[in-house]
Amino acid sequence: MSYQPKIVSFLCNWCSYTGADLAGTSRMKYAPNVRIIRVMCSGRIEPTFVLKAFREGADGVLICGCHPGDCHYHEGNYKCLRRYYLLQKYIQQMGLKKERLRLEWISASEGKQFAELADEYTESIKELGPCKVKEVMEVLT
């Protein structure tokens, strides 16, 4: 079997997780690589989670929240956005390609967009190949 990347996706409950559910109820098909973790708001997602995911073997991390202005909790997604940019700068400093972490806005009605995103993101991670974080961190030399 060809290289199957592991992608951890953090989804907010109200928009993105519902959007991902909609992709399911609409029987859209997408790559099986994306593994979803539900949080109530994208504002709950913190750098520790993302770094942990890489540490445990994720090849990519996909964060999805409500569109700007549509956050169920008003502004949680903006907090997420700010953290995302700082985290991007940090992971690149640590030698990770910026494509390994991605943030997209998916509304509750965007099942199709979620399915397309999952496919497209999986492809882009496949192109990058396996992420070496776990391997590097596990062996002290």
Partner: peptide
Amino acid sequence: ADPGAKMMSAIAT
């Protein structure tokens, strides 16, 4: 667990 990550989160916020 990781004070750097916690601080990044706070500072970015």
